[in-house]
Structure formats: structure tokens, C-alpha cells
């Protein structure tokens, strides 16, 4: 009898906790329509806004988004409450953002991976589920080799990858991602060169692998690589951008070398589709003003961000242009049919 009481109390504890969990999600659901019907006034914003960041707190994307967000919040006279909703290459957070009430009180930080996720079919959330506000950074990438590598130029590297396909080890992030796509495009331009891919968790691990000579080459964002190049532990062969980069003025672009590969990663902001136009206009205006704030520009430069501005229309055009390319390179790499 006593034993039953005990098991009962355990069940009760679990039931209570489950109840708590249930209440939490219930509250979220019932709250939504109430705010949705409230007329969005130009008085926006009247309370702090949420910003959903899909990368973990303290990382490069997180810091960039918070910096931009803080200056935009100043323009709006309210603050952002930053939420890091991470996982599934961002799909979880973007899904949550796209499904939140389109009243302007939820702003999503968007990065290139939203295109990859959509092309891969990882998520039902499309970039079209967002109304874009603006783009504020670009992350140009380059091809790097260890300091004492025998390869002196991109041509030599690609020729070797063609002569002995799938022997040269290239460090990337998990397959199918942005870096792998860039490298896939390079392969496609050389008719037969193939690398052996070694996926690492992120940039830090790739830098370590390059400096420790555990790989033959790697694709990496340029930001933060200067020092390693100056020190001589890592060399840069080419930049995969339209123009040469100010960090490495002597390094040619792949385009100059005859390989037409431009692969640009970016960061920007969006709101769930259906957000009232006046609210969107106010947000875009605030982010634009914040971007042009000299104080922000100085801070961003200190933080090593490659600033690049596109307004909502240009940003949309960029994504519309990139998406078919993402699809075709993923097809070429064998990830999608």
C-alpha cells in the first residue's frame, strides 16, 4: 500500500512537470492570435522586440547580429531581446521565427545557410517565408594551404587535384555546407579535378588543421586569417570574390585566374511574411540608419566584420540569384536529385 503511494507521488511529480511543459507551449499558442488581431500601429515598437539568432551565443554570427541589433534598437527606442535558438544548421530557429506572429516584434537574423537548408529539403521553412529587411555583412572566402605547401598557386593545386583525383585533402565544414559548395564550384570549373573532403566543426578547427599540416588545403573566410598568413604558417592562393580583398591586396581572385567562381556568404535580417508594411518600413529604416552610424561602422571594423549593405529589394535579388546556384551545386555534389 505504502509502495503504491510512493509510485503515485513519483507519477505526480512527473505529471506536474509535464503539466508545466504543457502550459508553456499552450500559453505560446493561445497568445499568438490575440496579438495577431491587434492592429499594428505606426506607434511600433511599443515594447522590447525579440531577435532570433540561430547560431550559438558568442560566435561570430551572434556577435555581429547583436552589434547591429544594438544600434538598430537605439534608432527604434526599444531594445532587442536576443534568443539563440540553435540546431539543425539553423533550421529550428528560422522555423520558429517564420511561424511567429508577423507584427514586427520578432526579427530573424538570416545567414547563407537558410538557402542550403531549403535546397537540401531539411526544413519546410523557405527564405520566401521571410520579408527581408537588409543585408549588413559579406564574408568573402579564399583558398588556403599550409605555409610549407608545395602548391604556389591555385592552378597548381587544381592541376594536382585533377592528376590525382580524391587524394588531396581539403578542410571544409560539414559536407553540403557553404565551404563545400564553394569548392564544388571550383571543381566544376576545372573539368575533372576532385578533392578529398575532411569536414571540421568550424573555422577554428579548420585553421588548426591548416597550421598543423593535417590537410593539404582548405576553404575559409578571410576574416581572421591575416595573422596566420603574415606569420607564414598558412598561405592564401586565391580569393573567391568579384574583387581583390583589402586584407590580401596581392592575392588574385579566382576569376582573374580564369576560374569564374564567386561564392559569397552574407548576414542580414528578416521578419515573418505578412508583417505590415509600415512596420517593415520602420524596421528597415532603423537598421539602415544604424548601419550608417559612424560609431557602428567603427565598432564593426574593430570586430573584423566585412560590412556590405543591401537594402530589402537588393537583398531579395541577391537571394533569388543565389538560390538556383545553390541547388545546382548541391545537385552536382550529389546531395539532391
Amino acid at each position: 500500500m505504502k509502495k503504491t503511494t510512493r509510485y503515485f507521488s513519483i507519477l505526480l511529480i512527473i505529471a506536474l512537470s509535464l503539466g508545466l511543459v504543457g502550459c508553456g507551449s499552450q500559453a505560446a499558442k493561445t497568445e499568438a492570435p490575440a496579438t495577431a488581431t491587434a492592429p499594428a500601429e505606426t506607434k511600433f515598437p511599443e515594447k522590447p522586440m525579440d531577435m532570433i539568432i540561430v547560431w550559438s551565443a558568442g560566435g561570430g554570427s551572434d556577435l555581429a547580429a547583436r552589434l547591429m541589433g544594438d544600434y538598430a534598437a537605439k534608432e527604434l527606442g526599444q531594445s532587442f531581446v536576443y534568443q539563440n535558438v540553435t540546431g539543425s544548421n539553423g533550421a529550428i530557429g528560422w522555423d520558429q521565427a517564420a511561424k511567429s506572429t508577423p507584427d514586427g516584434y520578432t526579427v530573424a537574423n538570416l545567414t547563407f545557410d537558410v538557402l542550403t537548408n531549403q535546397a537540401m529539403g531539411q526544413t519546410t521553412t523557405k527564405y520566401d517565408d521571410f520579408d527581408l529587411l537588409m543585408q549588413f555583412t559579406t564574408q568573402p572566402v579564399g583558398v588556403f594551404v599550409p605555409g610549407d605547401s608545395p602548391f604556389q598557386s591555385l592552378e597548381e593545386l587544381l592541376a594536382a587535384a585533377k592528376a590525382n583525383p580524391e587524394t588531396l585533402q581539403m578542410a571544409t565544414t560539414p559536407l553540403g555546407g557553404f565551404f563545400h559548395q564553394a569548392s564544388g564550384l571550383l571543381e566544376a570549373k576545372t573539368d575533372g579535378s576532385k578533392f578529398k573532403y575532411l569536414p571540421f566543426k568550424g573555422s577554428a578547427e579548420i585553421i588548426a588543421a591548416l597550421s598543423g599540416k593535417h590537410v593539404d588545403c582548405g576553404i575559409q573566410t578571410l576574416t581572421g586569417m591575416e595573422q596566420h598568413v603574415q606569420e607564414g604558417t598558412i598561405r592564401i592562393l586565391a580569393v573567391l570574390a568579384n574583387d581583390r580583398n583589402q586584407l590580401f591586396p596581392d592575392t588574385p581572385t579566382a576569376k582573374e585566374l580564369g576560374y569564374d567562381v564567386v561564392w559569397e556568404s552574407w548576414r542580414g535580417f528578416g521578419v515573418p511574411k505578412g508583417t505590415p508594411d509600415d512596420v517593415k518600413a520602420k524596421l528597415e529604416d532603423a537598421f539602415t540608419k544604424a548601419y550608417n552610424n559612424p560609431e557602428f561602422q567603427a565598432k564593426a571594423k574593430e570586430a573584423g566584420l566585412d560590412l556590405a549593405f543591401r537594402n530589402s529589394a537588393d537583398f531579395k535579388a541577391l537571394l533569388d540569384g543565389q538560390f538556383p546556384n545553390v541547388q545546382s551545386v548541391l545537385k552536382q555534389l550529389g546531395f539532391i536529385q
Partner: peptide
């Protein structure tokens, strides 16, 4: 010395240093 964080706390510290315009790495 390398700009490579050894755990999640140092990863956040690295970000915080870069915000301050200090770039950890071989040249630091």
C-alpha cells in the same frame, strides 16, 4: 597564441576580444 579556442568559454572570450579590436593569434 593561435586564435583557436579550447572550449566554449574561450570561444566566447575570443569573440569578445575581437569586438574590442584585439585579434588573438600568432602575432598577439
Amino acid at each position: 597564441t593561435l586564435g583557436i579556442p579550447g572550449d566554449s568559454v574561450t570561444a566566447v572570450l575570443l569573440g569578445a576580444m575581437m569586438i574590442q579590436g584585439i585579434q588573438p593569434g600568432p602575432l598577439l
